[in-house]
Write a protein that binds this DNA or RNA. Structure first.
Lengths: 361, 361
DNA sequence: GCCTGGCACTCGGTAGAATCGAGTGCCAAG
DNA sequence: CTTGGCACTCGATTCTACCGAGTGCCAGGC
């Protein structure tokens, strides 16, 4: 399709004007408005004929005859790909981000959750934060902690600072000593490997211990594959502001509640190498009136999770892209500093400062 | 106020009819409709004059002249307190609940989160689950796990099966041996006490160890006070269905996002011994068009968290109360079985079964 | 050949009038 | 005290007229 690739410059300028205006006002924009836009020096009549062409080629649509034009998904796509740079954050926003990442502390989940809060403050869209998959993260510690006579909690600490846990019911009483021995054997078998690659420990002499180990060991493997489908969603209320049809709001919220769907949506988009998915592009029908902006997070050079924004298709793409990018960078750096194995290159903060006054968030 | 306490039976019947009808239809209800309601055998004219009285006494309101009446907060209050029993769940709902609690497994947080999902499935209102405060829970294990040369994660496992963690930056390198020694000393000092009551360990001979211990110990106390303000909110999309003004939806959602507010709202309501807070009763202005149903969860006889439902003031109180109560009971029993110290009285389930097929929720 | 101003036409949105009807308050009679 | 009757109110609905933003088309000009 030649027409997909390029538009003559004037058409492009007109499309840009329509998109910009529509993003701002949410009103269909007419030829007259476009004619007044900076950089366009032709009459409204000329614009009209160009618009007819743009509509024929699928970049614009008319809600009804005698209304202005609104961009189609394809129109937004062209705008994002060809007409606009990611944009920059305002100084005050940059400042906000820096301050946030200077102050934030504590463990990873809390940090990610608050990051999602930050993102929606910055943009007034709903935000999504996908935690790093720790398939690769090495196990730092494995422990069986007794909770009841036959019940124990298997706790694994990973190098990235996350803790995975799962209760195990042994169906028969297990003494503290057996538990401790089993715990130590598991620890030895798992240490420094990734959760998925834990090897089976050698049988010990004690059948009771072996029984416990054999029950616990598969759970470790299980933990590896699990826990991925968690995602932090921030600011659903922003969506209620973005759409005015209450039905749309409900449908979108309902979809956002399905974490699995959200996760695979983000994964899909990233896999296809996109940073923006507009309207129907992502193929999730209930979200067809939404656009998604995603940026992978890089920790020490490799991908680790992602941050994203979800808004109406008429979202402010340059701003959203900028926000996602900046936050993603900060987050990646921060995660690298705090949680990755070999790195403690930063001067170091205070030791687990008391959480500051309640009230925020 | 004598009128608060009692209404003559006919007035009460009329009020009941109005509330029931309005809950069902969301339309102001007129004298004619009330006259047709079962159990009312007077003419609409009589009803009208009674309604005038009810309005004067504050139980009913008129959106405008020549419209039917709608209940006021006070009207709902009387309805809940005097006119209705908690109601029962349909057999299929009961079944759903039982099956849910038979199947659910894994660790507490996940369980609570899914419980909140269950609640909103049952009722089509938004749900809130407040985790047990573990101020009192005994520490089962404390461990310092090294993440980097100067960075460690303090991991505490409590008797209720929860894990609290916090990263600590020691600002200088700490050897593995020192870390291990400090970890053991902390463990000894904390074991079987509650997080808040951890005693300071005796100084050891080694200043490096003492340094680490002295940095880590206050963090334990910190963990105790923290982590309470977490709350699981389920089904915000249900709220979009319950209100038709998109502004209301946004305001309510925005409030729900503030976890601290939600937590203190629930606490307030419970403290005042209520199980229902209607409209302005709870004093949180943005939620004045909502009603909250709360039921404390009892584990082995003492209160541990709560479950709640949030809907429009015209919510189905009997159903909501029934759902909250049933779920709360099941949850309390389940928590008792799985996580509390002395109890493994149940036949015991399978050992940490593989999570079943993805796709659900 | 492309651009432009002019012009007739379309059609959604708004305003006003008419109408409908659910619901009320009041009252006189049972 | 209750009831049926009645006049009245007022939001919702419908209809009409109308406005105006916006279009498509065209003839004339650069």
């Amino acid at each position: 399709m030649p027409d997909t690739q390029d538009l003559d410059p004037r058409k492009a300028a007109i499309l840009e004007a329509v998109v910009t205006e529509y993003i701002g006002t949410a009103q269909p924009v007419g030829s007259h408005h476009v004619a007044q836009a900076a950089g366009i020096n032709v009459s409204s009549a000329t614009i009209r004929s160009e618009m007819v062409a743009l509509e024929r080629e699928g970049y614009l649509a008319q809600p009804h005859t005698s209304a202005g034009r609104i961009p189609t998904d394809k129109g937004y796509r062209f705008f994002v790909d060809q007409l606009t740079e990611p944009g920059v954050l305002s100084p005050s926003q940059r400042h906000k981000v820096s301050r946030f990442f200077d102050q934030v502390h504590g463990e990873m989940e809390e940090m990610l959750e608050r990051t999602s809060g930050l993102l929606c403050e910055l943009t007034s869209y709903a935000s999504v934060v996908l935690p790093p998959s720790h398939e690769a993260a090495a196990v730092r510690s494995v422990q069986l902690v007794g909770l009841g006579p036959r019940l124990a909690l298997l706790v694994a600490v990973l190098a990235d600072g996350t803790v995975e846990k799962r209760s195990i019911d042994f169906a028969e009483e297990v003494s503290d000593e057996v538990l401790a021995t089993a715990s130590a054997r598991l620890q030895a078998a798992a240490k420094s490997r990734s959760l998925g690659a834990v090897i089976a420990p050698e049988p010990s002499g004690d059948p009771a211990v072996d029984k416990v180990v054999s029950l616990a060991q598969p759970v470790l493997a299980d933990l590896a594959s699990e826990a991925h489908d968690r995602v932090f969603v921030g600011g659903p209320s922003k969506l209620a502001a973005a759409f005015d049809a209450v039905d749309t709001v409900r449908a979108v919220l309902a979809t956002l509640e399905k974490q699995l769907v959200v996760v695979s949506l983000l994964r899909d988009v990233i896999e296809r190498g996109l940073s923006v998915a507009i309207g129907a592009e992502h193929g999730y029908e209930p979200l067809s009136s939404c656009a998604v902006v995603v940026t992978p997070v890089n920790v020490d050079g490799h991908a680790a999770g992602a941050v994203g924004l979800l808004g109406p298709t008429r979202m402010n793409y340059p701003q959203a892209l900028a926000a996602a990018r900046v936050v993603s960078e900060h987050l990646g750096r921060r995660l690298g500093e705090s949680f990755d194995p070999g790195s403690a290159r930063r001067p170091a903060g205070r030791a687990a400062p008391r959480r500051r006054a309640r009230g925020r968030r």
